[in-house]
Simulated scan of single mutants.
Amino acid sequence: MSIKVMIVDDSAVVRQVLSQVFDKASGIEVMDVANDPYMAMDKMKAQWPDVIVLDVEMPRMDGITFLKQLMATRPTPVVICSSLTQKGTDISMQALAAGAVEVIAKPAAGVKGFLEDSASQLVMAVRSAAAARMSRVRVMPSAASPAASSATAASGLETRPKLSADAILAPPTGSNVFATTERIIAIGTSTGGTQALEAILTELPRTCPGLAIVQHMPEKFTRSFADRLNSLSQIEVKEASNGDRILPGRALIAPGGKHMMVKRSGAYYQVEVVDGPLVSRHKPSVDVLFRSAAKFAGRNALGVIMTGMGDDGAKGLKEMHDCGAKTIAQDEESCVVFGMPKEAIKLGAADEVMALEMIAKAICRQS
């Protein structure tokens, strides 16, 4: 059955190009288009879409207000596609806080070319949104205070062949890392991960092991996201910079548009932030983080794969498992999208499958 999409955007060009992109995609049908939320609401009286692709800046009613009304009356997966998200991440965080499942930042100029070039990203965003369990999406009381919700920004796809972590780092050769007293935690997540990470990090004490985290997000989003979590948590949360130490009571979030790896430096662990191609169609990639943790931390690490569309991180978690690390997959019931954990479980990569509310306690047990 096709995913029925409604496009709500005041630009006729955007409506036309998006319609063409989705009409060419298998399993997606553009149900209708509207140039503002009032027209959309009128059309939805006849038929309700599976996914809404929504602009932010529109006449009569802005997209954030419309999104909040939707979530209050009939929660529906929404992909925000707006140039306002380029101007400042506050608007994007407000969209996520209001219940958007995916956010795509389009440029203020050259929109037609961007949308055509980003067809794969847009299609993946819609499919990811359609798979979201809206019952697990927690809308914040006030989107004016940009908090992490259950949504995540789309990290994008390419039409080029899907690359593995081999493109960045050679695979581990086995469990050859000596056990030490220092433990690190590697976490990977995507759609639904902003809310899930908030739930975990705000529960951790300052004595918890250091964390390295990949959340699928584009550039400029991750710093605001990290700053927000830092303001809510006892531990330090920051967007990672190359060479940052992984320390107890600190969580490092991979910057959007870069890969992040765990490296051993003498008696300490630190992160290496590098550019490179998309891996498992993402940058940052969970597979890259997990492979590096397998190779350089081995049995001294805990790997956690959480809610998200696709399979990024599944193979990397299996490598961590095979190198002696403890591994956890989030359970289906607490996931917004059970894609990434499901694929890891299929591979036999997870030692344990547990609910979101149990993961913080599992992390603390690694101290």
Rank of each mutant, 00 (worst) to 15 (best):
A151K: 00
A151Y: 15
T152F: 13
T152Y: 06
A153Q: 07
A154N: 13
A154D: 12
S155V: 15
G156V: 05
L157T: 04
E158R: 15
E158M: 13
E158S: 15
E158P: 04
E158V: 13
T159F: 14
T159L: 14
R160G: 10
P161W: 08
P161M: 06
K162G: 00
K162V: 09
K162R: 14
K162P: 00
L163D: 03
L163C: 11
L163A: 13
S164D: 13
S164P: 05
S164Q: 05
S164C: 11
A165C: 10
A165P: 08
A165R: 02
D166F: 12
D166A: 13
A167E: 12
A167S: 13
I168Q: 06
I168H: 07
I168C: 11
L169Q: 11
L169R: 11
L169K: 04
L169N: 02
A170Q: 13
A170Y: 04
A170I: 08
P171A: 14
P171F: 09
P171T: 13
P171H: 10
P172R: 03
G174P: 07
G174S: 06
G174E: 08
S175W: 00
S175R: 11
S175E: 06
S175K: 10
S175D: 10
S175L: 03
N176E: 07
N176W: 02
V177T: 10
V177W: 00
V177M: 02
V177Y: 00
V177P: 00
F178R: 09
F178Y: 02
A179Q: 07
T180Y: 00
T180C: 01
T181C: 01
T181D: 11
E182Y: 05
R183S: 10
R183W: 01
R183Q: 11
I185L: 08
A186D: 05
A186R: 01
A186E: 02
A186Y: 01
I187D: 01
G188V: 05
G188R: 02
T189I: 08
T189N: 05
T189S: 15
T189V: 15
S190C: 13
S190M: 06
S190I: 08
T191N: 08
T191M: 08
G192R: 02
G192D: 01
G192F: 03
G192K: 01
G193H: 01
G193Q: 01
G193T: 03
T194A: 15
Q195W: 06
Q195A: 15
Q195Y: 14
A196K: 00
A196G: 05
A196F: 05
A196P: 03
